[in-house]
Amino acid sequence: MAEIGTGLVAIGAAMAIVGGAIATGWAQATIGAAAMGVIAERPEESSKLLVYLALPETIVIFGFVIAILLALNTGGA
């Protein structure tokens, strides 16, 4: 029974990462497309747009933190 629990926690940790990664990718795709449009019109704004492009990465970082916490609480890391 404990092994099943550990497995479920591992699945939960994986889901936290996967969900965060998909959400980040989705957000970056949208921002990236919009940013390319802006750069075509105003190339001088590209440096600021790079920062906006990096913003959604926080989502996957949260997923990473959750995954590590789950793994730590089950002795997996």
Binding site: T58, I61, F62, F64, V65, I68
Partner: peptide, 12 residues
């Protein structure tokens, strides 16, 4: 809180 947790990217 999100800002502080964002620094976890250093570890990641």
């Amino acid at each position: 809180a999100g800002n502080a947790l964002s620094y976890a990217r250093i570890a990641a």
